[in-house]
Design a binder for these strands. Structure first.
Length: 618
DNA sequence: ATAGGGTTAG
């Protein structure tokens, strides 16, 4: 078996084309059985240099070259002993071989080489293997590799530490792990070094240890633009967007020049917290700095304008871009999808192909979402087959979107079959099924799903609770609803507006208006659904004065009522025979475009009939 | 070597 073959003349090593089969080399090293082995009397340094000049790809390509090809090569011979003594313990060569193994995807082989070499210092090779683990999603392996590096107690320089940190950042590592690396950093005296601190900040932010990141940031001696980007984008991604935006302001105050990276991060933060005006101001800055044709900057701008429903502008930026990528399309597609323009989204999907861009799972998920909400089953089914062909059906987001499609299009049987076929521990799927059974008014199945998911160890989330509670409300299972509420409190879950509004609705509908009122008053944000639930609840239980009082309060706060709120208020007026006020609300509802709404119509008939205006009632 | 897009809810 041939291990190393060197083509070309032996006189000039640098011109050699050397092909190494790492796998074969390792096998040989393992067995130590001499193959028909040829090598010239090269020193280990020379051989190492030779290995270094070969592009890795070529080695990979020749990994399984046919033997006839090998014979054609001008092969140089060496002694097996030379290799054994000269190469085996040499870090440089081993490092290179690990690189080659890593590039060839021969993970086991790379592991073995690293393992066998007792005196192997840290080198970039560890990183190559770590990257490979990340690529192959062998997350457990990465952590154990890094642990081994740390355990080896070797001296790590700043570059090495930075590489380790970046490797950690690619996988989900626990905070104890990050802290362990951090301890090393402090020990080696790099705690203010920007090359180390930048990836450390990034890692802390990804591990959701935001305050640790801020601490490091504050202690840093010099900060470069990478530091600022890491902080601003990291804060934005950790739902602390405002702090990110404020940090940007601080940065500008300090006279630090913005970069395209900075702009896309801060624009994204603005988009997330609906600070559209600020986003537009930043757009002006972008033009001023001449970054308006940067791909990432444009993408964040398309996202900004899509989210503030200025799709005309989003489309304009999109069309003026010289280069678009998949994300550009996905952003605009999701913009149109959110607006309910499923046709426009689907057009863009087709257009992607003309630019040779391949739609990914994000694209398909967006499109499935719009098909589901528009009830366009046939398009959704087409997308399903596209997803199968593209091999993205195991993507959890695609699974969720597909199940939602079938549920929303009332394909209950298909949905159920699909659900049974998935076998994942994806909470979204359970939540969607909960909605499905709730829609059918099937409390028994809903409860079954609800308890089964918890038996599987899945925590109900902000989508789960409103779903089960809504079903309880609609079928009148208040006791059960109360049990769920107790559970919410017991688990320490912070109820959001959806949970609160459905609780308010449940209690209000079933006459427990004081309880409903308590939850309502504790709600910090103005939520139209909660207001309506209260107003309707009072009216329903003949507490007309309370109902009207709340209706007036809502209007004073500048909240526009929906049809149910208006209808309830009119009913309340009828109840206390407040004819003029009822008439006023009637004209309001006409202005709001509810003149043909059935619930308002019924309330009006009641109002005019009770006030003796039979003609108007008619 | 730091950046941009995503599934389930009244």
């Amino acid at each position: 078996m041939i291990l190393i073959r060197i083509r070309g003349s032996s006189s000039s090593l640098h011109r050699f084309r050397l092909n190494v089969s790492a796998h074969v080399f390792y096998k040989w090293r393992q067995s130590c059985q001499a193959p028909t082995f040829n090598f010239a009397a090269f020193s280990s340094t020379a051989a190492s240099r030779a290995l270094n000049i070969i592009p890795v790809e070529e080695n990979v390509g020749s990994l399984y070259a046919p033997s006839s090809e090998i014979k054609k090569c001008n092969t140089l011979n060496i002694q097996r002993e030379n290799l054994k003594n000269g190469l085996r313990e040499d870090d440089g060569i081993s490092a290179r071989l690990v690189d080659i193994c890593a590039a060839a995807g021969e993970l086991d082989c790379a592991f073995q080489i690293l393992n066998d070499l007792s005196g192997f210092r840290y080198s970039g090779s560890w990183n190559k293997v770590i990257s490979l683990c990340i690529e192959k999603k062998l997350h457990g392996e990465v952590s154990s590799l890094i642990s081994r590096i740390l355990d080896k107690n070797v001296t790590l320089d700043d570059v090495a530490l930075a590489n380790i940190l970046r490797a950690c950042s690619g996988v989900k590592v626990g905070f104890h792990f990050v802290e362990q690396v951090h301890a090393k950093i402090i020990r080696y005296g790099f705690s203010t070094n920007q090359h180390v601190c930048n990836p450390l900040i990034d890692l802390y932010l990804k591990t959701e240890l935001v305050d640790s990141a801020i601490q490091i940031f504050k202690n840093m001696g010099t900060r470069d633009s990478v530091t600022w980007v890491a902080m601003i984008s990291g804060l934005s991604q950790s739902c602390r967007e405002m702090e990110g935006i404020l940090l940007y302001c601080e940065m500008r105050k300090l006279g630090v020049f913005p970069t395209p990276y900075i702009f896309s991060s801060v624009i994204s933060a603005c988009t997330k917290v609906n600070l559209y005006e600020l986003g537009e101001q930043l757009h002006a800055q972008i033009l001023k700095w001449g970054f308006s044709s940067e791909l990432f900057v444009c993408n964040s701008l398309v996202s900004l304008y899509s989210r503030c429903r200025n799709l005309t502008f989003a489309e304009l930026i999109f069309s003026e871009m010289q280069h678009r990528d998949r994300v550009t399309y996905n952003t605009l597609i999701s913009g149109f999808a959110m607006q309910g323009s499923s046709e426009k989204s689907l057009e863009l999907f087709e257009e992607m192909h003309t630019e040779s861009l391949k739609p990914d799972s994000v694209t398909v998920a967006c499109l499935l979402g719009t098909c589901a909400s528009m009830g366009v089953l046939h398009k959704g089914v087409q997308l399903h087959s596209y997803a199968i062909k593209a091999g993205m059906c195991s993507d959890i987001i695609i699974e969720g979107s597909l199940l939602d499609l079938y549920v929303k299009c009332s394909e209950v049987k298909t949905a159920h079959k699909f659900f049974l076929a998935t076998q994942t521990d994806n909470v979204v799927l359970w939540n969607v099924m909960l909605v499905a059974y709730g829609q059918m008014g099937d409390l028994q199945e809903s409860v079954h799903i609800y308890s089964q998911m918890q038996n599987k160890g899945l925590q109900p989330n902000q989508y789960t609770y409103p779903s089960i509670l809504r079903t309880c409300t609609s079928v009148g299972a208040i006791d059960l609803g109360e049990q769920v509420q107790t559970q919410v409190i017991k688990t320490g879950f912070q109820p959001n507006v959806y949970v609160c509004s459905v609780l308010i609705d449940m209690y209000a509908k079933h006459g427990k208006l004081e309880t409903a009122q308590k939850i309502f008053r504790r709600l910090s944000e103005d939520d139209i659904v909660s207001w309506t639930a209260m107003i309707a609840g009072y009216a329903q239980h003949d507490m007309f004065h309370e109902s009207l009082k709340l209706f007036v309060e809502m209007q004073e706060r500048g909240i526009r009522s929906d049809n149910i709120g208006l209808a309830s208020a009119i009913s309340a007026c009828a109840g206390i025979q407040a004819f003029d006020q009822g008439r006023q609300i009637h004209s309001q509802s006409v202005v709001s475009g509810y003149s043909s709404d059935i619930s308002i119509g019924n309330a009006l008939v009641c109002l005019y009939a009770r006030c003796g205006c039979i003609l108007e009632a008619h």
